[in-house]
Design a protein around this nucleic acid. Sequence first.
DNA 1: ATTACTAGGCCACGAGTAA
DNA 2: TTTACTCGTGGCCTAGTAA
Lengths: 228, 228
Amino acid sequence: MSELKVQHFLTLAHLISKGAKSNFVSITTSSLGRNIKKSQQSASKHLLELEESGFVERMISGRNISVRVTPKGYSEMLGLYTALKSCLESSSKIELKGSIVSGMGEGAYYMSLKGYTEQFKEKIGYVPFPGTLNIRLDRKEDFEAVKKFDSAKTTYIEGFSDGKRTYGWVKCHPAKLNSSLDCLLIRLERTHHDTSIVELISKYDLRKAAKLDDGTNVRIEIPLKNNS
Amino acid sequence: MSELKVQHFLTLAHLISKGAKSNFVSITTSSLGRNIKKSQQSASKHLLELEESGFVERMISGRNISVRVTPKGYSEMLGLYTALKSCLESSSKIELKGSIVSGMGEGAYYMSLKGYTEQFKEKIGYVPFPGTLNIRLDRKEDFEAVKKFDSAKTTYIEGFSDGKRTYGWVKCHPAKLNSSLDCLLIRLERTHHDTSIVELISKYDLRKAAKLDDGTNVRIEIPLKNNS
DNA sequence: ATTACTAGGCCACGAGTAA
DNA sequence: TTTACTCGTGGCCTAGTAA
């Protein structure tokens, strides 16, 4: 018999907080009105309508009124509560969309430098395939999202110097390519101002593994810690 | 800048469940409409109004729209969630109101029978003052509440027989008289059909301790287990 | 003091539609 | 396809008021 109307939500919540779960609690429509920030008349109507839909039971003795929430009413609130809970507590992921662009080959060069490979081996357990997969992001809103990675704390590969020049740090974020291939999204110190292109590295040759040509559309998912 | 309107509640919840907490998520107003069981037009208006009140940020790129929930929007939902949580999880109490009526003295007689006192000593740790305080309940809705005690599981004093006749069981529920005096509300097998009068027993003489005469109005609180 | 009816205003919603 | 405008209808709300 009908659904809970949104405008009755606060009313039902207030009744439960008054202890009206399975026990009659005496209440006046004016105090209820004050609590839900509506008029006495609205509060009265709410109770009548909630009763009609089977969410509460009313018991009238003279001028006073007692109300209790029915199991149906309580389970309705419990449903809302758990729905809210799951949507607030669920850890989510960021999804990026883009297409493959050819790198200049310099990714392969940098990633195979001993200053990096030794740290890779130590910090992620393997030396990535020498070469990066460059992806140009399609969507403007994704550029924004990428910026967050620079301040997020993840695997941090330190920069180094070989005497001639210095090489910047690299941050690695676990990611999934097209929902299946494990890889790392990397952010480089030297390019961290540019957020329209992201680079992926992996244990394997991603280009071959996923049969990717330039221009192919791909999807990247990056799991997100709950509080970030 | 204004409060969250109730009708926007579901919309905001849906956005968060889509992962729009602090990250832009691309969405169409029609899919949003379907999810909140409103029209595309309403969904569009919701987003506009939510943005105007500072609960979400919108980012438009061409035909598509991306939305993220602002910290303000998120904390609003978190507030609702915790409010709901506390009102659903709080263990409550039943409050009865009534006035003292004089017992016939038979309470004192029964309660001092050895068959009962030995069990009292064992199960509640002391022998109650010989005599019961009888209270006539004022409110019709309280009669209903008292019935629940008979099926609730609490201290159970078994009935017995002295050879001549049998004496019924007694159930004891911890209670507080006028918010201060610890006592036990008892339900007797022989009178468990009558719910307009309840009887209290205590370690002490409640009548003297609280200076109670017949007709005095009293309040009885019985703490309630969470799931009853 | 209550509860709850009636009348009327305002606003949320959806149909139609433009861009 | 989109988003979001206008406008008409229906329903929520409050003021006034009866009981």
